[in-house]
Design a protein around this nucleic acid. Structure first.
Lengths: 76, 76
DNA sequence: CATTAAAGTTTCCGATCGGGGACTTTTTGT
DNA sequence: ACAAAAAGTCCCCGATCGGAAACTTTAATG
């Protein structure tokens, strides 16, 4: 039930996205269909690819109903 | 004093990073020196480049003492 | 089991990343 | 106003992105 999840790197980002996609019972293909990203991108993003591009990541986050927040270290 | 700042796209990400860098009185060059990114990258990131790579973005966020958090829409 | 979908892998390829360095423009400080 | 620093632009180039499509492996369902 913890609402905020701190993400430290691409690895964790991918894992969180995967987990969330499963919760929503979506396939990688479905995400790639209602967002402007390819199937391979979703696949690689979930695997923690460090070179995934931020614009496409925002597309996926939006599609999954996830918000990105920034917090100054120490204030969380 | 709001601790959490919602970032909706690359544009906002760049603006926030710029603002934070100024607060810390750092130059783009300095950031590129103590992180593994080039000057040009910091420049373009702040300008909202949508193709900036996530791994390098994490480097900059770490360098600036910023944490990335994900929140489910509606729970913030 | 058998069948089908999903996930993961591989190849091809045009487009673009990001670093380095040189240069120009803008900002800063005295 | 002037000098210096910072920011922004430009070019070169090796490396890699991400889409598409075909294929293999894994998982799910009857």
């Amino acid at each position: 039930m913890k609402p905020f999840t701190k993400i430290n790197n691409s690895e964790e980002l991918g894992q969180y996205i995967l987990k969330e996609r499963k919760k929503l019972k979506l396939t990688q293909k479905e995400i790639s269909e209602f967002t402007d990203v390819g199937r391979k991108f979703v696949l690689e993003l979930e695997k923690g690819k460090t070179t995934a591009q931020i614009g496409k990541i925002f597309e996926v986050l939006n599609g999954l109903g996830l918000e990105l927040h920034l917090i100054k270290r120490g204030e969380s």
